[in-house]
Each structure stands twice: as C-alpha cells, then as structure tokens.
C-alpha cells in the first residue's frame, strides 16, 4: 500500500511538470504585458520594473528560474501586489476555497445520496420520476442564475442569510447551496443508477432469501455499493466544485482562489496564474490518488497494481 502510494506520488511529478510547462508557455503567448497601464509609464521606470522581476531575460532563462524556485517551494512574487509572494496569496485564499468546497460537498453528499436512494428504491414510480426531473434541473441551472435567485428570493426577502462576505458559518449558507446544486444532482443520478443495479444482483437476492431483514439489505449492501459509485467519480466531482467556485466566489465576494485567478489573468500576473493553476492541478491529481486508495479499501476485490503485500 505504501509503495503503491509512493509510486503514484512519484508519477504525479511529471504530470505537474507538464502542467507547469504548458501554463508557462501559454502565458508567454498572451498579448499585452503585466505593466501596460492607462497612465503610460516612462521607459526608464518600465525598465526598472522589468529588471526587478527578471522579465528582461530570455524566456528560457525565466522558465529555468521559475522551475528552480518551484523546487524550493517558491512560487515567485506577484506582479500586481508588490510586496506579496504568490505563496502568501495562496496560503490565505486556498483554505477559504477548501472550506466552501467542503461545505458544498457535504451538502451535495447528504442531499444527493438521499435523493438517489429515494429514487432508486422506488424506481419507476412518480417519486422516482420527480427526482429524476429535479436532478436534470440541478445539472442544467448555471450557478449565477441559482445564486441570483437565492439572493433575490431568500437573502433580500428575509434579510438573511447574508448575500456575500465571509464572516461566520452563516455566510457560507447561500454560496454552498449554490455550489452544491450541480454535484447534488450528479451524485443523485449516480446513486440511483447504482441502487437499481445492485438491487437486481444475485448477492442481494441471496441475502433477502436468507432472511436478512429488508432494512439491512438496503442499508448495508445497497448503500455501500452506491457510495462506491460516488467515490469513483470523486475526481470529476471535485473538478465540478472547482469550476463552480470561480463564479460563486465572484458573486458572493468570497476571498477564495477562484477570484484571484480571474483577476490574475486580466492583470497578466504570470506567477499568480501559474500558482493557482498548479495548486488546482495538484488537488485534482491528489484526489484521484485518494479515490484509488479509498476505492481499494471499500472494495477489496480490487487489487492495487504494484501492491505486493
């Protein structure tokens, strides 16, 4: 198990290197530079600034310098925020994004698995169809529309919960709900499919025939398998949450990483864009690894390649 984990972690390094290289190359292809301003800078001052950030060096040199920094855990300085390292910015904003994402994930798991079970256990009934319809709706509603609806219909009508900012858990309510809609629907669909599939399988029928109580069959077998299905798709789920977080953080004025990325691209803040991209990529790579490990643990039939013990 440990060897497998180590091997997978080693494999992640070239992946992240590819990500870093591709992003670096893309950034240098962007038109416009980080220090073009409305109030034009005298050339002397521009030269001073470019020298300070080594932007006057050949691109290959800059690339080498950046990678060397990365190895030391140094993401470089931010161009837009003089006096702030990219690492500082990430340290402040990453936990916020994670909190928001975790809140949304918990909501989505509870609601999604619940709805999926409710639909799958009564497949073909009106209840099932209604839930299917709702999940389709959840997948189809863009976060900015749902966010606007929640703000207008709840926050302004009742004066609560807050329609923005990040002060106490109450402030996470509306953004987490908005962010959770898509994954909830997705999880519900997965759970439903898996419940229907499992319910028809031999071992469940056998268990029933053996007189294991209906409730036990449901909860132990069906739930376990449903969770397995959800866990398999944890990677895409996480990607969904990240995608959604850009807009949600923007709408609700939440100081997470997504907000930084958007402004960093328009500001041509190269190191900040690189930093955010790398953190997101690392998150996805790690979560894929975690999924494989958890999957092996939930379903012992799967042997992990490279796991000798």
């Amino acid at each position: 198990m440990i060897r497998y984990t180590a091997a997978r972690l080693l494999q992640a390094i070239p992946v992240l290197l590819v990500v870093a290289t591709v992003t670096f190359a893309l950034l240098r292809l962007l038109p416009g530079g980080p220090f073009d301003r409305e109030k034009a800078l005298p050339p002397v001052i521009l030269a001073n600034i470019e020298a300070r950030y080594h932007l006057d060096e050949p691109v290959a040199r800059q690339y080498a310098r950046y990678l060397a920094g990365l190895v030391r855990g140094d993401f470089g300085p931010s161009y837009k925020y003089p006096g702030r390292d990219v690492a500082d910015i990430l340290r402040d904003s990453f936990p916020v994004s994670i909190q928001l994402g975790a809140a949304a994930l918990v909501l989505a798991m509870l609601l999604g698995v619940g709805a999926g079970l409710a639909a799958g256990m009564r497949a073909g009934t009106l209840q099932d169809r209604a839930i299917i319809g709702l999940t389709l709706l959840g997948i189809s509603v863009p976060s900015f529309v749902l966010g606007a609806a929640l703000v207008l219909g709840v926050a302004l009508r009742f004066g609560w919960p807050p329609a923005g900012l990040w002060e106490s858990p109450a402030y996470a309510l509306l953004p987490a709900l908005t962010l959770a809609a898509f994954p909830t629907a997705y999880i519900a669909q997965l759970t439903r499919t898996s419940v229907i599939e499992v319910a028809g399988r031999d071992f469940v029928r056998t268990a029933r025939a053996k007189g294991v109580s209906e409730a036990r069959v449901r909860w132990v077998h069906v739930l376990r398998n449903a969770l397995l299905a959800v866990v398999t798709y944890f990677g895409p789920l996480l990607a969904m949450l990240l995608t959604g977080s850009f807009v949600v953080e923007q709408i609700f004025a939440i100081p997470g990483m997504g907000r930084f990325f958007v402004t960093a691209v328009t500001n041509r803040d190269y190191p900040l864009v690189m930093g955010v991209t790398l953190v997101y990529a690392a998150l996805i790579v790690l979560s894929n690894l975690a999924v494989d490990l958890v999957y092996g643990w939930l379903d012992p039939r799967i042997r992990l390649a490279g796991d000798e013990s």
């Binding site: 992946v15 990500v19 990607a239 995608t243 850009f246 864009v273 997101y280 790579v285």
Partner: peptide, 25 residues
C-alpha cells in the same frame, strides 16, 4: 499518460487561458 496530464488541468482555467492565447495568435 498524456491524457492523464491534460485531465488534471482545471477546465475553466485552461479555457480562459487558451481563449486569450488563441485570440492573440
């Protein structure tokens, strides 16, 4: 392996970057 690497790139980030790049190129 290459597909895996691309897969770990966050979608929206890449779309935004690529759009700007293509727009320039």
């Amino acid at each position: 392996r290459a597909v895996d690497a691309v897969y770990s790139l966050p979608d929206v980030l890449v779309i935004v970057l690529l759009t700007e790049v293509f727009h320039g190129v």
